[in-house]
Design a protein around this nucleic acid. Structure first.
Length: 206
DNA sequence: TGCCAGGCCCTCTTTAGGGCCTT
């Protein structure tokens, strides 16, 4: 197997939240992230954070994060200040990145900070490179690609680690499907935004 | 178990509608 590595380091991150939209009052309750360098995880970040109100039974069931766990967690602002330092200067990756980016912007704005990182989406890229996958949810892709996992999903660090494995698998897919051996973050962003019909032309010209 | 929102993508499209993803 060709081992394709992205020249740039990236931080893959994932939020667990109280719901789907910060515009509707939802907040982050956990952040998990891994730093990928030279094709391997070199650093990790994980923290629960107290949103200041009770999470719904649905969210407690969905994530396994309950109000008792959050009662002793740091406030969102304290965690996010440390996380902002962790991601500073790095390119970011998330699965369905538009979701996590909205919460990142919201939680950083709450402490007077603004993210300036570039970001790319593993879901948009997998839709283009893995067109035969039955679903492009993170769990389905992990199963489809037979990526090693312990069956835990919907916790931030586990999902970040699974997304990191997916990201590395997508780099392998680029090498195997298209023989693309020079991959930088800007190309991954471009793939995410390229219509499927124009993907082959983009990659053959790379 | 799934609604909320937002963005992307496809098609029986573009003067629109609905499914997929994220929690």
């Amino acid at each position: 197997m060709t081992k394709q590595q992205l020249a740039d380091t990236v931080i893959v991150f994932d939020f667990e939240t109280t719901g789907l939209s910060p515009a509707q009052g939802d907040r982050a309750i956990e952040i998990g992230a891994v730093l990928i360098e030279n094709g391997q995880i070199q650093d990790r970040f994980q923290a629960l954070m107290n949103p200041g109100f009770a999470v719904s039974p649905f969210i407690a069931d969905y994530t396994g994060i309950n109000n008792q766990m959050l009662s002793t967690a740091e406030p969102c602002g304290d965690v996010m200040a440390r996380f902002a330092d962790f991601i500073a200067g790095h390119n970011l990756v998330a699965h369905n990145a538009s979701f996590d980016w909205r919460f990142l912007e919201y939680e950083l704005a709450a402490i007077g900070r603004v993210p300036s990182n570039a970001i790319s989406c593993s879901m948009l890229i997998s839709r283009r490179l893995l067109q035969h996958a039955p679903s492009h949810s993170l769990g389905s892709l992990v199963s489809y690609l037979n990526l090693p996992n312990d069956g835990v999903f919907h916790r931030a660090l586990y999902d970040a680690e699974m997304t990191a494995s997916l990201w590395l698998a997508l780099l392998d897919e680029l090498a195997q499907q298209f023989q693309v051996t020079e991959v930088d973050f800007a190309l991954m962003q471009k793939i995410a935004k390229t219509p499927k019909a124009k993907l082959t032309k983009l990659l053959l010209n790379t």
